[in-house]
Write a protein that binds this DNA or RNA. Structure first.
Length: 593
RNA sequence: CGGGGCGUGGCUCAGCUCGGUUAGAGCACACGGUUCGGGACCGUGAGGUCGGAGGUUCAAAUCCUCUCGCCCCGACCA
């Protein structure tokens, strides 16, 4: 490609709205342009990198038995109504009507389409297992797109769907993806870890997320450096410090004027926070049939802990949780700041307590009366809960649920995830097969996804310096940046043109800077675009005996004779590929629960 | 959706508080010249419904109302 005719120019300054470095650099280097909030065009350079990423995805998924298909971006709403997600999913789904007024949906994901295909195509266990995948556009009307390509509304995703006759077979496909995904990320030179994750709107029984650790990440992760436990904060467990067993004390009302927080309460009464109970009020929207009903929830955790809303939502099977408003709290007879489940009407309040509450005797709770608390509150004797579950949030320094060592908090970007879905979609849509014994059963599904644009952005985050991008060769839009610095005699031009032709003939991917620009501009642009290898042809280099070769990530420059330039570049390219290949290999599958 | 911020040539911004000539600068772009290995210099030039609509006023980029868009912070996801 000749830069003189490259569509899209480099920018000296990034647009003011670009905050994260991958966004700034991808825009400045001419990879992407924004059309609207979370909507981007991908120019030539980005397109080439994305194609490389997607081909890596194809190779790895083909290698575990995947068959590439293409499923539609626009769906009749009917299939989404069949699984109930038409109603369960809110504003995030893009909805439209066709000319006849029929409800249509923009694809957010493709479980419904896969299940529909499956019920048409699969009749027998003899056809299973199968794995279909595609690389296709999705639309999710995210409430808050941000950070360039990290979080967008229209995006392209590799998603694969496994179809199995039994759990053991699903498990094999799940594990195959676990490895294949690491291969994909390793081949893109993006360091990732896996964490156990919430199953969210997908449903299902087991899920892992692949995380690129970075402070700009939106997910909070809990990691154990000792045993390797890793989980998204949404579901992270931890060992809760036990409180000493003691005989139940009688209830005692104490005046605590102006003491409305746990901090203040613990200090006022001189008790540890672990001896207090914290009540949090929320309104849960719980699906019921095609609609949802609001439940008033009192969540109770010990004062030394926080409520984890994802865990709580799962415990009450809510699709949505929001904090209760003050008047809603008063309406059930509780008092903000002095609340307690003791004495509340269980018909109006769904009481959910953390699992640590029943084993923590003689807590201090609110008295449901301004300015008063109650000592000696005991679960079972003074109140009970509709649900007892783990609803407390893990945080920095909490004890690892597996080995007890301190957990560490880190931020990460979710670049991929894998789900064991089970039969949620195939049951709903009647995708069944006849098993060996002749009985009809639902196909068991798994779904697995990687966002290609987000992956590209993460690679940019991981590989750049003060001068610009520095692509790993597997993702770089071109392998070689050929820089021509013209001379008066025209020799450099002739040699550069000849080298450009020979490199192309040899199958080397070259970006040829043939523009009429000053050297400084060309070098700055080369660094900004970040191709792995740079070759300069100039009067100076020719005098020194050939062309100048430089790696983007190293300061050294070498003069290579013209006759050896192609073979030397090929050797460099091979070496760069080999270096990345050496980082690809089997990873252990975490067997621990 | 709640909170905050910003919309002025392709990009970065000034001008707005206190209304008043033809709305400015740098970068980028075109032409001429001098330059030519790390984002050159001089000259000339082109390019702007000041996001949009309505209002106040003799007069609006500037004040008011509405509206659209974008960014950031909190509840969701590849």
């Amino acid at each position: 490609m000749r830069m003189s005719h490259q569509f899209g120019q480099t920018l000296r300054e990034a647009p003011a709205e670009a905050e994260v470095v991958s966004h700034q650099l991808l825009v400045r280097a001419g990879f992407i342009r924004q059309l609207g909030a979370g909507i981007f065009s991908y120019l030539g350079l980005a397109r080439r990198s994305l194609t490389k990423i997607e081909n890596i995805m194809r190779e790895e998924i083909n290698a575990i038995g995947g068959q590439e298909v293409t499923m539609p971006v626009v769906h009749p709403a009917d299939i989404w109504k069949e699984t109930g997600r038409w109603h369960q999913i809110g504003t995030e789904m893009g909805r439209l009507k066709d000319k006849s007024g029929r409800d249509m949906a923009l694809a957010m994901t493709h479980e419904e389409v896969v299940a529909d295909l499956t019920r048409r195509e699969v009749q027998s266990y003899r056809q299973l297992p199968m794995l279909v995948y595609h690389i296709q556009t999705k639309w999710r009307d995210d409430p808050r797109p941000r950070a360039g390509l990290i979080r967008v509304r229209e995006f392209t995703m590799l998603d694969s769907y496994s179809l199995d006759a039994d759990e053991a077979s699903l498990d094999r496909q799940y594990r195959a993806h676990y490895q294949a995904y690491f291969n994909i990320f390793n081949r893109c030179a993006l360091p990732t870890i896996t964490v156990k994750s919430d199953v969210g709107m997908m449903g299902g029984s087991l899920a892992h997320e692949f995380m690129y650790l970075t402070p700009i990440g939106e997910d909070t992760l809990l990691l154990c450096d000792h045993c390797g436990y890793a989980a998204n904060r949404q579901i992270a467990r931890f060992r809760k410090p036990a409180t000493a067993a003691e005989a139940p004390q009688p209830l005692e009302r104490v005046a605590t004027p102006g003491v409305a927080t746990i901090e203040a309460l613990a200090e006022f009464l001189g008790v540890p926070k672990a001896r207090t109970a914290k009540a949090v009020f929320l309104i849960a929207s719980v699906p019921q049939g095609d609609s949802a009903v609001d439940r008033f929830v009192l969540a109770l955790v010990r004062g030394d802990m926080e409520v984890n809303e994802t865990k709580l939502a799962n415990a009450v099977k809510a699709k949505e949780l929001r904090p209760a408003r003050e008047e809603e709290i008063r309406a059930v007879g509780a008092v903000p700041g002095y609340a307690s489940p003791v004495g509340l009407d269980p018909r109006r309040v769904l009481v959910v307590v953390d699992e640590a509450i029943p084993t923590s005797p003689n807590l201090v709770g609110g008295a449901n009366e301004p300015g008063y608390h109650t000592r000696g509150v005991n679960y079972g004797r003074d109140f009970t809960a509709a649900i007892v579950a783990d609803i407390a949030a893990a945080g920095e320094g909490d004890a690892c649920p597996v080995c007890g060592h301190a957990l560490r908090v880190s931020r990460g970007v979710e670049v991929g995830n894998i789900f064991k879905l089970g039969t949620r979609y195939t049951d709903a849509m009647g995708a069944t097969f006849l098993d060996r014994g002749g009985s009809q059963r639902a196909v068991i599904m798994g779904s697995y996804g990687i966002g290609s644009g987000r992956l590209l952005a993460c690679v940019a985050e991981a590989h750049h310096d003060a001068d610009g991008l520095a692509w790993p060769i597997t993702v770089a839009p071109y392998q070689v940046h050929l820089v021509l610095l013209p001379d008066a005699a025209g020799q450099a031009q002739r040699e550069a043109e000849a080298l450009y032709a020979r490199l192309q003939a040899a199958g080397v991917e070259v970006l040829f800077d043939d523009r009429d620009e000053r050297p400084g501009v060309k070098f700055k642009d080369a660094d900004l675009i970040g191709l792995p290898l740079r070759v300069t042809v100039s009067e100076r280099s020719l005098k020194q005996g050939g062309v100048e070769l430089k790696r983007r990530t190293a300061p050294d420059r070498a003069i290579v004779p013209l006759g050896q330039a192609v073979s030397r570049l090929q050797a460099e390219i091979t070496a760069l590929y080999d270096a990345i290949a050496s980082g690809v290999g089997p990873v252990p599958y975490p067997e621990a629960p």
